[in-house]
Nucleic acid binder design. Structure first.
Lengths: 206, 206
DNA sequence: GTCTATACTCTGATAGAC
DNA sequence: GTCTATCAGAGTATAGAC
């Protein structure tokens, strides 16, 4: 149960404009970073004037925080779904698949997150040391039990989770490089799906 | 053989100051991104005044380019060393090890590079589509031959290289997150070394 | 709710004394 | 070579008319 504050009642036009601003801000922040982005760019992309943008959000900082606030849950949900009662290899491969789908469908969110961590997570430190760490420890315990029961091969569980993050997010965050190296006529995410399935199947085979 | 231009003759003090500036700039650009960094911060960290910094470099842009220019070779050297005549698994594990050592010893360079790619590589597009792509294709051919000869397991060679980049650079670029999740009393790079050795040994076993 | 005009700050870069 | 002073432009944010 989250204790998010009750959203204030808003008119149709307010809802629409706030959403346009957040959509535009995601585009700009994820590709330019916080300081690289300007209110001008965001307002332009949202189809508003700069002062009008600031009518909906009190500051640039608040626009950015609003985006980040929604991010972590989306990012962790695929891991939450990994079920201790399921088949180990299937559960892990399912997690890899869901995480890769996130990279494919929400690359801007992935880059927004990457920008934040790269810079030392000035605005997310607390949630990373709290919520994220707690979830990883919970799921690492599940993985460890599967290993002790001989249902998957033994590897360091936390680094196994890191590896899934690294490999799936790479295809969103370094998309430009991936496409440049592959050249035309490739579907990076389809190929990544096949590669990662093979990789984790071989790694985890007891 | 590189055709780098002959460096201009410089006094001792010029050499020292230029190096101090580049060192300071690496620190600041890698943690704040290009637009996030200010000449003020860089000058301060280098122990110079802002105009004095601009006596050594004509602009912020040139300081940044100078850093990037030296980067790609360092980054690609470990892959260049992978020898078609060596033992396949040993060669690949050696590459993983060298790349992980780079992440450990030059995390700021890794983050500078990550910042650049994240933002669509506005200043490195050419070298990525040229030099980097060419080297990857050359080494992918080596990997493919090893697979055809049955000396390592069959996987998509380019994605195998991507996986090594993703997994090793993750420990530099997401260092903050890695340490936050692991908590005290861990040596992330030592643990990563063990994990990655296991991972690639199992993946590649014919 | 939205716009024009503008205040104010920060920052990259230059001028010119020493 | 280095410093103080300063400019010009960009960028965040506010005032106030409509």
């Amino acid at each position: 149960m989250q204790d998010t504050p009750m959203p204030l009642p808003r008119s149709r036009i307010q809802t629409r404009n706030r959403e346009a601003i957040l959509e535009a801000a995601l585009e700009v922040f994820s590709s330019q970073g916080f300081r690289g982005a300007t209110l001008e760019q965001i307002a332009e992309a949202a189809g508003l004037s700069k002062p009008n943008l600031l009518y909906y959000f009190p500051s640039k900082e608040v626009v950015h925080s609003t985006l980040l606030a929604g991010l972590l849950d989306t990012w962790l949900d695929p891991l939450r779904e990994m079920d201790a009662a399921g088949d180990p290899v299937e559960e892990i491969l399912g997690y890899v698949r869901r995480k890769l789908d996130l990279s494919r469908d929400f690359p801007r969110e992935s880059r927004l997150f990457a920008n934040e961590i790269l810079q030392g997570a000035p605005r997310m430190r607390a949630v990373i040391e709290g919520e994220l760490k707690a979830l990883v420890e919970e799921k690492a315990a599940v993985l460890r039990r599967w290993m002790e029961d001989g249902r998957i091969a033994r590897v360091e569980p936390v680094h196994l989770i890191f590896s899934i993050w690294a490999l799936t997010q790479h295809y969103a965050d370094f998309d430009m490089q991936v496409r440049a190296v592959l050249g035309e006529g490739h579907d990076p995410f389809a190929e990544a799906g096949a590669f990662l399935t093979t990789l984790y199947a071989r790694l985890l085979r007891p």
